[in-house]
């Protein structure tokens, strides 16, 4: 009996060991599970944190926008970040937009208007690839919705630049990222402590900037989340009352047939 048990344990241990070996071999290619972050917009009552959105926009504008466009955002959309119309107008005017053709048939540059889309860093995808060693920096206005894991994934990528494990081959011109599929990412580590100075005094650590910019990008991907959650709560209240009323009516009407 005792020997049988011991043998069983031994077999189990051997199986576990072989699994561990197999797993560590596979891990070189696989990415660890995404750590879950606390987001202000999580859950049914979640809303975007305006201060984080403003800090996140600052991180995007000063760092990410060097390579990544936010194709689906217009300057006017920034009103949701509590910027005043004058602030938005001034911000838009600091960018150049192509307009025209004028009455001479020429396209011309003018300061952007709040009704213009926010211009990206490159005129087209080919120019973006040419400037980035052949890799296309993806549009960030949709990225949170376009990746498995959403905000947790984007946050993990921004914090996932760790030294490559021994024996891992990092392709020339690429960087090791723990959470990127295949680990070879074309983007150099974009954030470093103190890279921006927040007006509200928040300390600009890498996790802080990553958290803020991911909040901003989540808003960029799903700008109607606040409204959706608010209307949803009312719809639920309405329906729950409806369920009660119809259930009572059903009971009363059916009482005669049961």
């Amino acid at each position: 009996m005792g020997r049988k048990l011991a043998f069983g344990w031994l077999a189990a241990a051997a199986a576990a060991l072989s699994l561990t070996v197999a797993a560590s071999a596979a891990r070189a290619q696989e990415t660890p599970p995404l750590p879950h972050q606390q987001w202000s917009f999580d859950g049914v009552f979640g809303t975007y944190d305006i201060a984080a959105l403003q800090r996140g926009f600052q991180v995007y504008k000063q760092i990410c926008s060097a390579c990544h466009p936010v194709k689906h955002l217009f300057f006017r959309d920034l009103a949701a970040l509590d910027y005043t119309p004058d602030q938005i107008k001034a911000l838009a005017a600091s960018y150049k937009c192509t307009a025209g053709p004028n009455d001479q048939g020429q396209m011309y540059e003018r300061p952007c208007l709040p009704s213009d889309p926010i211009p990206g860093p490159f005129p087209n995808d080919e120019a973006a690839k040419a400037a980035n060693g052949g890799a296309l920096p993806p549009d960030l206005s949709m990225v949170v919705k376009a990746r498995e894991g959403g905000p947790d994934y984007v946050f993990a990528i921004l914090n996932g630049f760790v030294p490559a494990p021994a024996g891992f081959h990092v392709v020339q011109g690429k960087y090791y990222n723990e959470y990127f599929p295949g680990h070879n990412i074309s983007m150099p580590p974009p954030l470093s402590d103190g890279a921006v100075t927040f007006a509200d005094g928040t300390k600009a650590t890498v996790p802080q900037m990553a958290h803020d910019v991911v909040t901003f990008l989540s808003w960029a991907a799903e700008p109607n989340l606040d409204t959706r959650h608010r209307i949803g709560a009312r719809v639920f209240l309405f329906l729950i009352v409806g369920v009660g009323i119809f259930y009572a009516a059903k009971r009363k009407i059916w009482a005669a047939v049961h």
Partner: peptide, 23 residues
Amino acid sequence: YYTIKDLFGLTVFLLIYAFFVFY
């Protein structure tokens, strides 16, 4: 009889549907 039963069922269903649409 079945109009009210269907209405009751519909409202319960709408709760599930609304959960997906809104949350």
